[in-house]
Simulated scan of single mutants.
Amino acid sequence: MTVEIRTTRFDHPDAMKLNDLVQQEYVLRYGDGDLTTMDAAHFAPPQGLYLLVYDTDGTPVASGGWRAQDASPEGFTDGDAEVKRMFVVPEARGRGLARRLLAELESTAAAAGRQRMVLETGLKQPEAIRLYESSGYAPVDKFGYYRDHELSVCMGKPLS
Rank of each mutant, 00 (worst) to 15 (best):
A15Y: 00
A103V: 05
A68S: 10
A103S: 08
D57H: 11
L97K: 06
Q125E: 10
D39L: 01
D70T: 05
S135D: 09
G33A: 15
K142I: 12
R147A: 10
F87D: 01
A92G: 08
A109L: 04
Y146M: 12
T121S: 13
G156F: 06
E74A: 15
G65M: 02
V22L: 10
R116Y: 01
Y50F: 12
C154W: 00
M1P: 12
Y54L: 11
S134P: 15
C154H: 12
A110V: 13
A103D: 06
F143I: 11
P73K: 03
M86I: 14
V61W: 00
P139Q: 13
L97V: 10
L18Q: 05
Y50C: 02
K17Y: 07
D70W: 04
V118W: 01
L159Q: 00
P158T: 11
D32M: 06
A41Q: 03
S152N: 14
A81V: 07
Y137K: 05
L101R: 03
R6Y: 01
G64E: 03
S152G: 13
Q115Y: 04
Y132N: 06
I5Q: 13
V153R: 10
K84S: 00
M1G: 14
F10T: 00
V61R: 02
M155W: 08
Y30L: 05
T36N: 11
D78M: 11
G94C: 14
G136E: 02
F43P: 00
V53G: 05
M117N: 06
V22K: 02
R114P: 00
P90H: 04
T59A: 13
Q115C: 14
V140A: 15
A138S: 13
P158G: 07
Q24N: 15
S63T: 13
F87T: 02
G33K: 14
Y137D: 00
A41D: 12
T77H: 03
R67H: 04
P90Y: 01
M38D: 15
R9A: 09
M86Q: 01
P60D: 08
R29M: 15
M16P: 00
L123R: 15
A68H: 10
D78P: 01
Y30F: 12
M155F: 05
A110C: 03
L159F: 05
T121Q: 10
V118M: 02
C154T: 10
G48T: 05
G58L: 04
G33H: 03
V140H: 04
A15H: 00
C154L: 09
G58A: 12
A40T: 01
E150H: 15
